[in-house]
Each structure stands twice: as structure tokens, then as C-alpha cells.
């Protein structure tokens, strides 16, 4: 699940509350049917891995020692080092790590025990494109084994490649929660048309009960079931269609649209 929202929307706060790091004023947090509070969160130790804000790293330890704080299992340690390709620097002292290396180590610490739930707050921060690709693949592979990921990121183009569901929040409130597939489908059900006579075309479309609107010389037509019928109708009116396309909608557009709608409703 992807958690998205503007700066200050409450993404990190939600994640911290899930981990018992914040006091929850209203509502409750439960993981595996066990309540999580600031004073009691025993369920997290065995079931949850997390990277919140910045990687929690002791500068006097090597990356390997840092991972040993999470697990004693050498097989798990070797697996994560190999998977995230950290062998070249894992035995170096962490104080010499670059931003990207520290971030990789933070992610490795969250994943190494392969917990049931992984909470990642801005995991792509500071990673180079290859590392981002590797992380994406790892998340996909682990998700297929049954692990659940709860990820927040501002790099929406990357986020949308790994998530199945999206949760959009604004000022601490959920404004959208839906499967990505459904979200994409709902945004794809419209066509953009350009014709030699947009005004005439709009009138014809409205007369034939197509949901449509004209904006900046482009007609947006909602959910046309029979495209042939629409095109034939316009051509019969001597209107030439100069361009027709189905816009590709990315997560960024969806987020901006949702936030616009919320702020519009607020006004």
C-alpha cells in the first residue's frame, strides 16, 4: 500500500503511530489483532520492520554489525547483503557511508528478518537509479511471498510501480483509499478529442448524451462505450477529427486532482 500526501499531511505521523512511537489521541492501532500503544507494542518486535524518517545508524558500527542488531541469523544477513548488493561496503564503519549507502542499510535493516509488515518512509531518498530498481524488484518479490509493505514516498512515479493500493491523505484525513487498478481504470475512461469544429462537435455530443466538456481547444469525452458510433456521428456532421487519444494518467496527476477537489470542496 502506498501512502501519499503533501508535506505535513501526516504520513510520518501515521507511520509512527503504527509503530507505537506516537501517542494516538483518537482511534486505535492494531496489528495482528493486537493493540499497539506507546507503552505496549510487543507485537511489533516479531512482525514488523521499519524505516522511519532517517536510517537509525550507529556511526561506530559496521553495516554488518548494524544488521546483527536486528538478527543473529547469518543466512538472513547474507541474503539481504546479496539482494541489495551491499557486499562492497557492508564491513566498513557506517560513519564513512554516503547518504545512499546509509539509506540502503536502513532499508536492509527493515527487510532482513522478512517480517510480515514492512513500513518504509521515503525509502527511495538518496538512492541512485540502479538501487531504486533493485529495491523495486525486491519489494515486488517479497510482496509475492506474502509480506505487506506500507510505503510513503514523494517519488510517485516509482511508488506507483510497486503498490497495489493507494491511500491519499490531506491534513491528517484520508481522502482516497482504493486499489491502483481501479483508480487507473476510472481515470482512463475518458477520451481527448480535437476536431476542425469543436463547438459544433460539442453540441452534437451533448445532443447525443455524451458526458463532455470543452477546454483549451480539447474536448474531453467521458466513458464512450462505442467509439465507432461516436466517430461515425461526428464524421456524418462533416466534422474532421484531427486528434484522438486516451490520456495516460500517473499517480501524480491523480494526487493533484484529488487534492484540488478537496481544497475546492473546502472553499
Amino acid at each position: 500500500m502506498g501512502l501519499i500526501g503533501a508535506n505535513g499531511a501526516g504520513k510520518t505521523t501515521i507511520m509512527k503511530a503504527m509503530l507505537g512511537l506516537n501517542r494516538v489521541r483518537r482511534g486505535t492501532v492494531a496489528i495482528a489483532n493486537e493493540r499497539v500503544t506507546q507503552l505496549h507494542h510487543a507485537v511489533l518486535a516479531e512482525n514488523v520492520g521499519a524505516l522511519i524518517e532517517h536510517p537509525a545508524i550507529y556511526p561506530f558500527l559496521t553495516g554488518w554489525q548494524q544488521l546483527q542488531l536486528i538478527t543473529k541469523d547469518v543466512t538472513q544477513l547474507q541474503w539481504i547483503v546479496e539482494t541489495l548488493q551491499m557486499a562492497a561496503y557492508i564491513h566498513q564503519n557506517a560513519k564513512h557511508y554516503s547518504l545512499g549507502m546509509r539509506q540502503q542499510l536502513g532499508i536492509a535493516m527493515a527487510l532482513v528478518r522478512q517480517p510480515k509488515l514492512v513500513v518504509l518512509d521515503e525509502p527511495m531518498n538518496g538512492l541512485d537509479p540502479q538501487a531504486v530498481k533493485r529495491l523495486r524488484q525486491t519489494i515486488r518479490e517479497l510482496a509475492q511471498t506474502g509480506m505487506t509493505f506500507f510505503i510513503s514516498s514523494h517519488i510517485l512515479s516509482e511508488l506507483e510501480k510497486v503498490i497495489d493500493d493507494v491511500l491519499v491523505i490531506d491534513h491528517g484525513r484520508v481522502i482516497l483509499q482504493t486499489p491502483m487498478q481501479q483508480l487507473r481504470a476510472s481515470y482512463h475512461q475518458r477520451l481527448l478529442l480535437q476536431t476542425t469544429d469543436n463547438a459544433h462537435a460539442l453540441v452534437w455530443l451533448q445532443q447525443h448524451h455524451y458526458g463532455c466538456a470543452l477546454q483549451n481547444d480539447v474536448i474531453t469525452v467521458a466513458a464512450p462505450d462505442k467509439l465507432n458510433q461516436l466517430m461515425a456521428g461526428l464524421i456524418a456532421q462533416n466534422i474532421q477529427i484531427t486528434r484522438i487519444n486516451e490520456p495516460a494518467v500517473d499517480l501524480e496527476t491523480i494526487l493533484l486532482t484529488q487534492l484540488d477537489q478537496v481544497s475546492g470542496a473546502g472553499q
Partner: peptide
């Protein structure tokens, strides 16, 4: 003090049953 200085308290708190 190092746990707050390095921000590692978050990780430690998640690993423990509680902060006590």
C-alpha cells in the same frame, strides 16, 4: 544519550516490548 543523538531510539523502541 546516543540513542536520541543518532535517532536510533526509534529502531530500538520498535524492537523492544516497550521503552521501559
Amino acid at each position: 544519550a546516543m540513542e536520541f543523538e543518532y535517532g536510533t531510539i526509534k529502531q530500538l523502541a520498535v524492537q523492544a516490548k516497550n521503552r521501559w
